[in-house]
Amino acid sequence: MSKPHALIVSGLAKSFTMHLRGDIELPVISGADFVLTCGQCAVLGGPSGAGKSSILKMLYGNYAVNAGSIVVRHRGRETDLAGAEPRKILEIRRETIGYVSQFLRVMPRVSALDVVAEPLVFSGAGREEAARRAAGLLQRLNLPERLWALPPATFSGGEQQRINIARGFITDHSILLLDEPTASLDAANRAVVLQMIAEKKAAGVALLGIFHDADVRDAVADTIIDVTGFAPDRRAA
């Protein structure tokens, strides 16, 4: 029996209109079709500039969608993210779709531990429980305990990325989007992240990621989605 789908993308298209550059039309993606399956990790493949990040951003609601649908299973119902109200998108982010971005946007005075615990608090968990799980993740990702109480602004790139990963992995969201989560990690920490991804899969989470490192990609990918297949017809542009 095949596993259920967590998210179905059909006919997805995206282009940018640069109004400050004489209204130039910049098509990025057209006719994208793919599904994310519960308990599997799909990886977006293709060269830089093919639109991998744009797809992730549309799935998280950061980019508007020009055409097509992104149907996600949310609160037991199928909801189209492409046309959803801002309030609905925020609700979906809080409960269903998690995101690990490439860079951490830091808050001046919020401690690393609180940054990690935050999404869990927002999804309704108690503060103590959230702090306990945050500490567990930071421990696993080998972030020295003396840093936990400090705001991550002055941390190194690798330390900030581990905060970001912990923040993305702390919730029990059923879909997780990963934008190069292992890019600035050493081998030991990369192995921890691979293990964490495997655990998410085992828990039935559907993952979609961008990984430039071929070893990482081979280790996590159940399917590769070739983004070059979604290239817009540039002759028409």
Partner: peptide, 10 residues
């Protein structure tokens, strides 16, 4: 990515 804005309360 969404760390900056506070999320609407649960």
């Amino acid at each position: 990515m969404n760390i900056a804005a506070p999320q609407a309360s649960a």
